[in-house]
Design a protein around this nucleic acid. Structure first.
Lengths: 358, 358
DNA sequence: TTCGGACATGCAAACGTTTACATTCCGCGC
DNA sequence: GCGCGGAATGTAAACGTTTGCATGTCCGAA
C-alpha cells in the first residue's frame, strides 16, 4: 500500500540506511547518490512514516495546547498566534479544551502524553498538585496565565495586575470618584489579579473613592444582569470597570436598553480588547492584551525548551498590557462611534501599564 | 526513563502480550490477572507509547483540520464544533491553516500525511487537481464548503445559494426595490454561490428590482470602503446585502459615521450570523449558519468513514441556513438595539431557507 | 607496491507495541 | 487414568524508521 523507505531503497539501488541519510540531509553521502535517491523518493511520492520515526527519535514534532475552552475571540486569537509560530518552526499543533473541568484537563493531558514533545497549558484553575499529578515530569511545558509559581515550569502571565492598576488610575484621573468593579469567576487567577490591581490602585490614590464590588463570572450574561440591576438602583456608580470585555459589553447592552447613557451617565471599561470591543456602541475603553502575541511567545518559549535537551532554567515572562481609551469612558474623541480602521481613524489612544506593579 | 509495557509485564509477572490484551480490553485474559495488570500499570503510571502503537495498528486516533485561516469568529466556532465531536469520539485534533495560499495548503496536507487518520479540509479555493495531487488517495477526507464535486470525497456544503436566495426574497418582500449586493473575493466558492442565490432570487421576482453589484473581499475593511462610497453617491440603493457579516458590519460603521441612518435610509443584511452581528447597532439581519454544528457534522461524517474500513460511498450533505431578522433591515421590532439574550428578548425571528434551491 | 586513512555505503539492532500462532494448563467425560 | 478441548498465557514476528558499527573502496603517500 504505502510506499516505505525500503521501496525507495530498492528502486534507487542503495540500502535503506543511505536513503535515510540522504533524505535527512546527513553527511556522508555523495551528491550524486543523494540526487538519485531524492529523485526516486519524489517520483514514488515517498513520505516517511512519522510514527516509525517518532518511535526511534523520540520526537513527534508536535506540541499540544490545552485551553480552558475554544469559545470566543480570545481563544481564537490565541490559537492563531500559536499556530503561526508553530508553523514557522515546522511544528504541528494538537489542540484540546478542558471545558473548565479539571477532570477533563487531566484526561486531555494524559492523552497527549507521548503524542507531543511539549505542551502549552492555559488554565486559570490549575494548582501545583494538579500539574505534578498529571503532567509527566519530563515533558517541557509552558504555563499561560496560571497561578502556579513553580520554578520547574516556564510561565507566561499577562500583566493582569498592572493593566487593571493602570485602568483604575485612568478612571480616577479622569475624575470619577465612585467606581464599581465587576469581578470574574471565583478562584480564577486572571480575575483575582485584575481585582487586586483595582484594589491597590484605589488604595494608593490620594483621592477618596467610593467603591462597589459586583460579582460576575466573565460571561456576557452576567454583565447584562448586573447592568440591569444598575439601571434600577439609585446608588449607581459613575464608572464601572469590568474584569473582562464580554461582561462590559453585556452591561453596555443593558444600559442601552435601560436608557442609561454611556459614557454620560456611566462610564464603562473592560479588559482584554477582544475584537468586538471596538465594534460596540460606544466603542469600549479597555486594557489591551496582545493575544496572538501571547500565543506566539508561549510557543517560542516552549520551542526553546525543546531545542536544548538540557532543561534550561525556565523563566517567568510577563507581557505588559496597554490601556486603550475609546468612547465608553468619555475618551478623547467622544464623538467617535466606529472602530479605529488602521491609520484612518486614530481614535485609539494607548498608554502603557508599566509602573503599576509594586 | 519512560515506563514501557515490558516494565509492566515484568512487574506483573506476565508476558507483554497479556499486558497488551488486558489493557486493550481484549478477551482471553482472566479477570484476576487483568486486575493485577491494571493495578501495576496504574501504579507505574504506564502510558502506552502512541507512536509504537500507531506503527503497528496503522491508526493514529488523530484527525487533521485544514482551514483557510484561524482568524475571526467563524473559524473559532468551527474548531469548537469539531473539537467537541472529536473529543466525544476519543479523537485528537491537529489543526493547521493555509493562510489562503494553496502552496501552504499543499505543504500542510503533506505534512499531515501519516499523522492523521483522516482530514477535514475547508478551502474555498481548492480544485480537483489540487486535491488529487496532494491528498493521498487512501486518506479519508471530508470537504467543507468546497467547490469540488468529486464523488470520491464526502462533502459538506452549507446552503449558500438557498440562504442568499431566501434573504434576497425577504428584502424584496419587505418592499425594497433597489438592492445592492456586495460580493466576496473573486473565485471564492461560498461567495459565488451566495451571489448566484441573489441573482436568481432577483430574476425570479415578479417585481422589477434595481440591482447594483459592488466588489468586496469578505474583509470588514472592504465593507467599510464600500460604505463610505455609498455615503457619497446619489444613486444609493435602498438595501444592501453583503456576502458576509464582516463586510456588512464595516458598511454599518461607515454609515454610522457618514450620518446615513440604518435601516431608515438604507437597510443592511449580512451572511454567517457570527456572534458579533447581534452586538452591533442596529443588530444585523443575516443568514444564520450553524457554524459549530457544521464542524461537528463534518467530523462525524469523517468518523463514519474511519469506522468502516470499507470506503463507503461518500455523501454530499447540505446543511440549511435560516434567515435571522434583526433591526438592520427594519426588523419586526425596530426599537430593539440589543442582542437576544436567551429567551429574555425574543427579537430574533428566523425563517428557514428551504425552497430557494432550484 | 603497500599501507593507511578518509569516506561512502551496507548491515543489523533497536524503538514499543500488537497479534498470529504455539504452548501450557485445567477440567471434564469417557 | 487418559485424552481432549477450550481457555489462558507465552513467543516471536512485524510495523518503518534511525544509527552505531563494520565493511568496502579509492586515493595518496611512503
Amino acid at each position: 500500500m504505502a510506499v516505505t523507505i525500503k521501496d525507495v531503497a530498492r528502486e534507487a539501488r542503495v540500502s535503506v540506511a543511505s536513503v535515510s541519510r540522504a533524505l535527512n540531509g546527513s553527511a556522508n553521502v555523495t551528491e550524486i547518490t543523494r540526487r538519485r535517491i531524492i529523485g526516486v523518493a519524489e517520483r514514488l511520492r515517498y513520505v516517511p512514516h512519522s510514527a516509525a520515526r517518532s518511535l526511534i527519535t523520540r520526537r513527534t514534532q508536535t506540541v499540544g495546547a490545552l485551553l480552558p475552552d475554544l469559545f470566543g475571540e480570545f481563544f481564537s486569537e490565541l490559537i492563531r498566534g500559536i499556530d503561526l509560530a508553530a508553523r514557522a518552526r515546522g511544528l504541528h499543533l494538537l489542540v484540546s479544551s478542558s471545558h473548565g473541568h479539571s477532570s477533563e484537563a487531566a484526561a486531555a493531558l494524559r492523552a497527549m502524553q507521548g503524542r507531543v514533545d511539549g505542551v502549552l497549558v492555559m488554565s486559570p484553575h490549575v494548582d501545583a498538585t494538579f500539574l505534578s499529578e498529571h503532567l509527566s515530569s519530563g515533558l517541557p511545558a509552558v504555563l499561560i496565565n496560571t497561578p502556579l509559581d513553580d520554578s520547574r515550569y516556564a510561565t507566561l502571565n499577562i500583566d493582569n495586575y498592572g493593566g487593571a492598576f493602570a485602568m483604575t488610575q485612568h478612571l480616577i484621573d479622569r475624575g470619577f470618584r465612585s467606581i464599581a468593579f465587576v469581578t470574574g469567576p471565583h478562584g480564577n487567577f486572571d480575575a483575582s489579579e485584575r481585582q487586586r490591581g483595582f484594589d491597590d490602585a484605589v488604595a494608593r490614590s490620594e483621592k477618596s473613592i467610593d467603591v462597589q464590588i459586583l460579582r460576575g463570572d466573565f460571561s456576557e450574561e452576567s454583565g447584562y444582569r448586573i447592568g440591569r440591576q444598575l439601571c434600577e438602583t439609585r446608588a449607581r456608580p459613575r464608572a464601572v470597570f469590568a474584569a473582562n470585555d464580554m461582561m462590559a459589553i453585556g452591561m453596555l447592552l443593558a444600559f442601552n436598553e435601560g436608557g442609561v447613557r454611556v459614557p454620560d451617565d456611566v462610564a464603562i471599561a473592560g479588559f482584554d480588547d477582544i475584537p468586538i470591543s471596538r465594534f460596540v456602541n460606544p466603542p469600549l475603553t479597555t486594557v489591551r492584551v496582545r493575544i496572538a502575541d501571547l500565543g506566539r511567545s508561549a510557543l517560542e518559549q516552549l520551542a526553546l525548551q525543546l531545542d536544548k535537551q538540557e532543561t534550561i532554567h525556565p523563566q517567568e515572562q510577563k507581557p505588559s498590557c496597554d490601556i486603550v481609551v475609546r468612547a465608553s469612558c468619555g475618551g478623547s474623541d467622544p464623538s467617535a462611534t466606529g472602530p479605529g480602521h488602521g491609520a484612518r481613524r486614530p481614535t485609539d489612544i494607548s498608554r502603557n501599564s508599566s509602573g503599576g506593579e509594586s
